[in-house]
């Protein structure tokens, strides 16, 4: 899907505008999903994801974790960990990811997979990092100016009113 988003942006079929974030300067990082990057499509898919995120939030507002792409650490939400009942171990596993995200200083972590989303959301709460986990479609819709009021459940206070579409038409 991310490769498609990237293709559509390259072809001009989608025209996200990152200028909403020029002055706000809200920082975003990105979790490379093991399943999509290391296990399936490799670094080209990771590069596509970066192209999409940067096109939506602005080049200077994207901060990568280290290590990243094919060498990224798993967040701990994969392999069925979320449903296995071993919560304590799952959070322990996620400690590396949590400190990686904190080190970027980003307020938002774009997650490319549902397991990552759930796990990183929980890590942010549990370890008090205060960062949010958001799906890629949320920031893409935001930068396209079509993200409705009710579609902002994973966004913080500061983004509730930003780039809202006109509801009179």
């Amino acid at each position: 899907m991310y490769t498609l988003y990237a293709t559509w942006i390259r072809e001009g079929k989608l025209k996200p505008d990152p200028s909403w974030n020029d002055e706000l300067g809200i920082k975003f990082t990105l979790q490379d999903p093991c399943q999509i990057v290391r296990k399936s499509f490799g670094d080209p898919a990771a590069d596509d994801m970066r192209l999409v995120v940067k096109a939506c939030v602005g080049e200077k507002n994207f901060i990568d974790m280290t290590p990243n792409k094919s060498n990224n650490f798993c967040c701990g939400g994969g392999g069925g960990f979320l449903q296995s009942g071993y919560k304590e171990q799952r959070l322990l596993y996620g400690q590396i990811k949590d400190s990686q995200i904190k080190k970027t200083g980003a307020t938002y972590c774009v997650t490319g997979c549902h397991n990552c989303h759930a796990q990183i959301h929980e890590l942010g709460d549990h370890f008090g990092g205060g960062y949010h986990a958001v799906h890629a479609w949320t920031i893409l819709a935001l930068a396209l100016g079509v993200l409705g009021r009710s579609e902002r459940i994973h966004l913080g206070e500061e983004l509730q009113e930003v780039n809202l579409p006109d509801s009179s038409r």
Partner: peptide, 20 residues
């Protein structure tokens, strides 16, 4: 998770597909 817990999360994707 979307239809069951947070259906609002489906809207952005539909809109993106519509725009393309």
């Amino acid at each position: 998770r979307e239809p069951m817990i947070e259906p609002e999360e489906m809207g952005p994707l539909w809109k993106i597909l519509n725009l393309v």
